[in-house]
């Protein structure tokens, strides 16, 4: 006679040999690996995008008639990409044999150091990029002639320094200096736009692990 499913179930689990202790320290292993792999992947994509964008810029700026500025921007982007790549090499020095929490903590420290280092670069990078963008507007094609005419027609009393209105120059310099001053905030906002979600997840996992260890 065939057994009922209830009998199969009861007999199957009579010995109750299923009890395996959930290993607390292992609970987050997979999650830690996933989140770090995800951040590394995003950084790699970001790096490739930066290099590809620099190529597009050169072509684009060529058609705007300011190839030399395009090359300058592309060089800046590639220098930054190379600097980021060098920083990413530092990730290899992290102890992969460490437990999840220690590895996550080391990774987080590396991340914070990288952001701090990048902020220093950004103090120069942002203003230079801004000046390049303004120079592009001014020098590309016939913009300079058109803008000069526009200014002289609407603001005839404006004081000029060479061909450029002093007040415009002052605003540009002010914005460039402000960008250098607020580089930290701008960069962190910029990073948050791209990596915000995964960074929050990383912090969440670390907080959970700290609570588990307490």
């Amino acid at each position: 006679m065939e057994k009922s499913i209830e009998t199969i179930w009861k007999e199957g689990f009579l010995r109750n040999d299923l009890t395996v202790a959930p290993k607390i320290n292992n609970l987050y292993n997979q999650k830690s690996r996933n989140i770090i792999d995800r951040i590394k992947g995003m950084m790699r994509v970001n790096l490739i995008a930066l290099v590809m964008f620099s190529v597009v810029i050169v072509v684009w700026w060529y058609f705007l008639g300011v190839l030399y500025l395009g090359i300058l921007v592309a060089v800046l982007l590639n220098v930054f990409a190379y600097y980021m790549k060098l920083q990413m090499e530092g990730m290899k020095e992290l102890d992969h044999g460490a437990c999840s929490y220690d590895y996550l903590k080391a990774f987080n420290n590396w991340l914070e150091d990288s952001i701090d280092n990048n902020v220093k670069i950004m103090r120069v990078f942002y203003p230079v990029m801004f000046l390049c963008a303004i120079a592009t507007i001014w020098f590309s094609n016939d913009n300079a002639t058109v803008l000069k005419e526009l200014f002289s027609r609407h603001f005839p009393q404006m004081i000029l320094w060479g061909d450029i209105a002093v007040v415009v120059l002052a605003v540009v310099v002010f914005v460039a200096l402000a960008m250098a001053f607020f580089a930290g905030r701008i960069y962190r906002w910029d990073v948050n736009l791209v990596y915000g979600r995964v960074f929050r997840k990383l912090k969440e996992i670390m907080a959970d692990m700290e609570e588990l260890r307490s």
């Binding site: 109750n16 009890t19 202790a21 260890r213």
Partner: peptide
Amino acid sequence: MSSDSYTSSILPYAPIIIK
């Protein structure tokens, strides 16, 4: 919930979770 209380709370129910 600390590690110990976690283990003592979850462990008896591990067979259920496994099933």
